[in-house]
Design a protein around this nucleic acid. Structure first.
Lengths: 269, 269
DNA sequence: TGCGACTCCTTACGGCGTAAAGTAACGTCC
DNA sequence: GGACGTTACTTTACGCCGTAAGGAGTCGCA
């Protein structure tokens, strides 16, 4: 896990909200050939392409034809750069108008789009949530979710808690999808081959697995996936099995959450 | 985020399941003065006390009065050590008998205990879930959850998805609680002081905040927390505000999830 | 008594983030 | 127009990290 929001809060916030002095055209000294935005864009591209592990100040500098130290003119350090990257990609979060007649559909669509966002930028999931970043784009995304939840008619306190439930849920689901993809890519065998190898080794090393973990074994033995009651599966056949499974878990979990919200509305209509 | 499960799967698994040759009393060479268990225990203690950031091979070696390289006799590398640490602490996960008459109470108690487990070992939340570790203790914990969910009477497919929903939910909630504690500890001001400073800076840098994010602002303006309908708050007054808020979000979110499960049972009784 | 296996140490390499100091480009003022 | 101060960027260096390579010392067994 990578940490953000570690530096001087004042400096971080003014960078995030672009509250610095305007570019000051015509000061002394050589003309700047970089900018905060260019650095953030390069860093995001690097993280998207090669993952968080490849993100180093030297690597970002290389991408811009500069040394690592050149970045420090624009950005106080790696932690603040991470803050800026984090908030920059959150500009892709959906903005969406509430629909009091179909809050459920709106929330479902919202969750799906947020899931895709995380899958597009899986490194975002590795940014620790300890100490929130509090950038403008994350707030904008938050504002949208709050708006959609307000359309359920629930009181402010409940909405606050649901925000705290829904966002982590989508993050967790996206993590599962991203992990499934990563596992598929790592082994080359894009299907359940990785699992097969792993469970073969397990079976060999732990012959009494079924006895020790009867519930888990029973679950696995109970054959292919039975659709969750009350929901119809959406057709997506080309997606490899583990990712399909993760997406189905997301769909079902979201359904359960929305059912729970519905129940709360019924309690206090 | 820190990665586990990266090394040779065979080697990792046989370490995890302790499938290695027995201690071979009386082989040649000097008597080993360390053991896998001692190393794992030292590493867990280090991570518990000083966080994942302080976990280095040299630091673990220091704790044992040995050099970093001495560890490599027992453990192939840091990644495998992380696997072992991860599974070792999961021995603390609750084991619990199912109660078909009160599956809801059982799941609530289970979730609460798991939350406390994560709060006790917050570094576990930083271990990436990509590529599962598949150790015996994690399986045991999983087995318990599956057992409890089976008591709802739902079909295997649904149970599978609920496992994938509940575990990440508890993890996310624990993350929030741990973050709240971390924020409190970092500033010394154990209360909302950190938030106050942060939001004061925000207000100064972004004077038009309320206009740009009306929904979020409205939510914050709507005064203190209103209890979620249908649930009574449990009395815990000494806990500082952010953590109390995180715990309340956990309680409410869990309630929503269980309501959703109840709805699914009603669909197919 | 030596051999071979084994634990543990020292040393070293290439990576990281970044502090410190040097170099060169530029706007401004005499 | 030349000196000066400011600024962008580079070079070098420090102390961390994980771990490869090789050497030192310890023990069981032939």
């Amino acid at each position: 896990m990578v940490f953000a929001g570690q530096g001087d809060p004042r400096r971080s916030l003014s960078l995030l909200w672009r509250a610095d002095a305007p570019p000051t055209r015509g000061g002394p000294g050589p003309r700047p050939r970089l900018s905060v935005d260019a650095i953030v864009a390069a860093a995001v591209a690097l993280a998207d392409e090669e993952g968080m592990g490849a993100l180093s100040m030297r690597a970002v500098g290389d991408r811009l034809g500069r040394t690592a130290m050149a970045l420090y003119t624009y950005v106080p350090g790696k932690s603040e750069l991470l803050d800026l990257m984090y908030d920059a990609v959150h500009a892709e979060l959906p903005r969406r108008e509430p629909d009091p007649d179909d809050w459920r559909g709106a929330l479902t669509a919202w969750a799906g789009e947020v899931l895709e966002f995380y899958v597009r930028h899986p490194w975002v999931l590795q940014v620790s949530q300890a100490r929130p970043v509090l950038g403008p784009h994350e707030y904008a995304g938050l504002d949208t979710l709050v708006t959609l939840l307000r359309a359920t008619g629930l009181p402010a306190g409940a909405v606050r808690r649901l925000v705290g439930t829904l966002f982590p849920f989508v993050r967790g689901s996206a993590q599962a999808v991203a992990d499934a993809r990563l596992a598929a890519a790592a082994t080359g065998s894009s299907d359940e081959e990785w699992w097969a190898a792993r469970s073969a080794a397990l079976l060999e090393l732990v012959p009494d697995f079924a006895e020790r973990f009867p519930a888990v074994s029973g679950l696995e033995a109970e054959g292919p996936v039975e659709p969750y009651p009350g929901n119809a599966p959406e057709g997506a056949e080309a997606v490899p099995y583990p990712e399909r499974e993760a997406r189905e878990t997301f769909r079902v979990g979201l359904g359960v959450l929305l059912d729970g919200i519905e129940a709360a509305r019924a309690d206090r209509p």
